[in-house]
Design a binder for these strands. Sequence first.
DNA 1: GCATGTGAACAGGTTCACAGCT
DNA 2: AGCTGTGAACCTGTTCACATGC
Lengths: 215, 215
Amino acid sequence: MSNLKSEHIPRATIQRLAIYVQVLESLRNDNVEVISSEHLARICDVNPSQIRKDLAYFGEFGVRGVGYYVQDLNSSIKKALGVDRTWNCALVGVGNLGRAILRHKVFKQRGFHIAGAFDCDPFKIGEVVSGLEVICSRRLPEKVKELNIEIGVITTPPERAQRAANYLVDANIKGIITFAPTRINVPDHITVEYVDFFHHFFNVAFNITLKDRED
Amino acid sequence: MSNLKSEHIPRATIQRLAIYVQVLESLRNDNVEVISSEHLARICDVNPSQIRKDLAYFGEFGVRGVGYYVQDLNSSIKKALGVDRTWNCALVGVGNLGRAILRHKVFKQRGFHIAGAFDCDPFKIGEVVSGLEVICSRRLPEKVKELNIEIGVITTPPERAQRAANYLVDANIKGIITFAPTRINVPDHITVEYVDFFHHFFNVAFNITLKDRED
DNA sequence: GCATGTGAACAGGTTCACAGCT
DNA sequence: AGCTGTGAACCTGTTCACATGC
């Protein structure tokens, strides 16, 4: 019952759609009602046909001769991506980064609700962070079921990432987002996303170096 | 005096090189001395020729019939990317995320040293976070010069990101990495990298949705 | 012999140009 | 008239296959 027009959607498209949503929501707050692909493209710094192509994967959302209704387009994209609802997440690893994510309201705003915080450090278990009690990672299976969690977020140090992943797999999680700088092994049916901000740092360093080397 | 073999290097290549460095460093810790492109490829989950092509942009680092010397390759890549030295960074916006980054030792380990923390909130100015005193953002120009800072890291809320960017531009920064979910405007000669972990969340949500819709 | 380095073939994503609607 | 939707052209990045060199 998929309403996709095409089979495979480029990951770059998903990334851009996330940006469009970001921009559309801020446009909506500014009470902009209609926008053309050309205008939206300028804001997002992409090619207008790129936007139209990206949207074409999912359907026809615009009005010819007019443009796109901001509100409509926004909810259509979110619906197409499956982010028109709340996703419950389990965060594993209550360190600095974990705490920052737990406190970051934007996650909830965008539909990703951290419903449980887990750690295997006995000193952390029981502590309350941002209204959530830290629970022993071993209890993931029971809690995932109870709290209706579908996504796992790994924020452990690299050496404990695989163990965290194992707990999540055992708990029957459907997808994992890991911030730990290591590759992890999980069964094929589980989607894994690696968040790696270092390549952004590398890229900036490289670009600066390139420019400096030009002399 | 560039030692690049080719003019433009795909951003995807840079991203993978960052992964290779990550993996090579962990291999080195495990005392692995030599590795073939095939083996490295399996770990990084890419195609072996991909690795060889990525490296070919910068030179010849391998030994035919043998493979790559882990230690050598690691330092060669870092040198090629310009991350074989320390980069001083200014962090603007001492909120939850900013604090997490300030405390995250990995940044320093990888050569990105946060040398100054800035905020415009008078309640935060003067506070000491992870050994750094929070300084008024207005003082960026003087501090950037004094501390020899080349990279700016924006961790403000979205509505203050542009202002932070302006301060950084005025301070003559060379590159910016922003974690705020908004587009910012800066002069062309300044490299900007947008860190956006939401698309990872979107992607996981989308993949799960796809799988669920298959029924 | 064996794994790298690389030109040639391929695949996939992006842009163009215009047909199709409103 | 104007902007979307889309097939075709283009271009960039990936994979293949083999020549090259240790």
